[in-house]
Write a protein that binds this DNA or RNA. Structure first.
Lengths: 126, 126
DNA sequence: CCATCATATCAGTATCCTCTAATATGAATT
DNA sequence: AATTCATATTAGAGGATACTGATATGATGG
């Protein structure tokens, strides 16, 4: 039964989604900004010089991924890391990343950002 | 000058890219399969029951992200985690993920996988 | 050299993700 | 209850990513 339904998003899909929460520049900036202190949405918007809608969506993502929590106080909502372990994970990511940073940055030898799948087309204008 | 060049992919972009290496189901499966042992591409393909081209591209991604290394031996290429710290990071991701797993899985209440940005349209055709 | 096996790369399509602008909710204040 | 401020949600466009099938490289053995 329930044929068409996608269901069974087998643990790994969920785990991938969790990690994907960390894999975006803007979200990393947000996480950095609330690493040691709660901040309201507007404070984050200001700190990142970002777009309110965009930041709000990223916050929803981070919350949905179990990475941050929000606490309402009057009209404000204060966001912070979900717990100490998340903070430790972030720190460990930092440490490991520092080790490979150069190599990763060099990966796409020139100026494209991606090197994962294909570095296709785009720059062949002659 | 240098107009077209993207350059200046400021550390955070590179870090996001590094983490993005971990944020895909297939790549997580690959990492799991070589967590404790070297494997050749075809062994991985077999273990995951995957498509050779697809796996190969994911391996290139993982390598480009500094997560794994390849060692050629005759016609074979053996892939393994880059170092012990990567293994530790994977382990820590596991631990932290277990804590939030339920909540993350429940995030998109029904059967869609994403809850990050928008959970829009899509499933309303039956 | 030629055939074969292991792996990598290419091209196309379909899907997913991020961004922006516009609009909606909801709490506080008057 | 109307206005204002803080935040969330929606819609659409553009760009990035994953997957597949076909083809290319590169090593080995005859």
């Amino acid at each position: 039964m329930m044929g068409a339904k996608r269901m069974e998003a087998n643990r790994l899909d969920v785990k991938a989604k969790f990690i994907r929460g960390f894999s975006d520049k803007t979200r990393l900036q947000i996480l950095h900004s609330i690493k040691d202190k709660e901040l309201t949405v507007s404070q984050i918007v200001e700190e990142l010089k970002g777009n309110q809608s965009n930041i709000s969506q990223h916050l929803a993502c981070l919350k949905g991924c179990g990475i941050i929590v929000g606490r309402q106080e009057g009209k404000f909502i204060y966001y912070s890391l979900r717990n100490e372990q998340i903070k430790q994970l972030l720190h460990m990511m930092d440490v490991v990343f520092s080790q490979v940073e150069e190599e990763v940055a060099a990966c796409d030898k020139n100026d494209r950002l991606d090197c994962c799948p294909s570095n296709k087309g785009g720059t062949e204008n002659e």
